[in-house]
């Protein structure tokens, strides 16, 4: 077994010591600080970026909150304006309606009065016509002129009976 050849121990140990110590020095002075520097730089960069991202997010949230507040205010204002105008219009409409109703009632009353007057006039004319008719009928039937004093009240009586 070549591993148990004692004459090879010395060169192996010597070169193991040399190479191992060289590697240790290279690693501890050069390789490891280099790699840890890279890893640290990356970690720092990431932390910075994350911090910046958090800051930007907070800013964006503030802007959003301000926007929402402005929107809510504007909406409330608009609602108030709409309500005011609606009430105003409703009042105006009611007013106009009331005036129209009054005018109509006035016209109705005037018309009724005219109708009453026309009716009275018509009645008066009918009485004159009835008296004339009654006189001529009486003259034809009796052959003598009618008694004017009795004719008027008789026609009146008959008209009142009919109207009743």
């Amino acid at each position: 077994m070549p591993q148990l050849d004692v004459s090879t121990f010395a060169p192996q140990l010597v070169w193991l010591a040399i190479t191992f110590i060289v590697l240790y020095v290279l690693m501890s002075k050069l390789g490891l600080p280099r790699v840890s520097g890279i890893i640290e730089a990356r970690r720092k960069r990431l932390d910075d970026d994350l911090a910046r991202a958090a800051e930007t997010k907070a800013e964006a949230e503030a802007v959003l909150a301000a926007y929402q507040k402005a929107m809510a205010e504007a909406r409330a204002q608009a609602q108030a304006a709409i309500k005011e105008r609606t009430e105003q219009f409703a009042a105006e409409a009611a007013d106009r309606q009331r005036r129209l109703a009054e005018a109509l009632a006035e016209q109705t009353r005037a018309a009724e009065r005219e109708i009453g007057a026309a009716k009275d006039r018509a009645f008066a004319e009918i009485r004159d016509v009835a008296v004339d008719v009654a006189r001529s009928i009486t003259e034809k039937l009796t052959g003598s002129p009618a008694d004017e004093g009795k004719l008027g009240p008789a026609v009146d009586r008959a008209l009142t009976e009919r109207a009743g």
């Binding site: 004459s7 192996q12 070169w15 190479t19 060289v22 290279l26 280099r34």
Partner: peptide, 23 residues
Amino acid sequence: DVSYTNAAFLMTIAVLLITALLV
């Protein structure tokens, strides 16, 4: 006896490769 052997040669290569990887 501090002869440079085949084992020492491989140790040297290992050191060179590790250093190359890290640097």
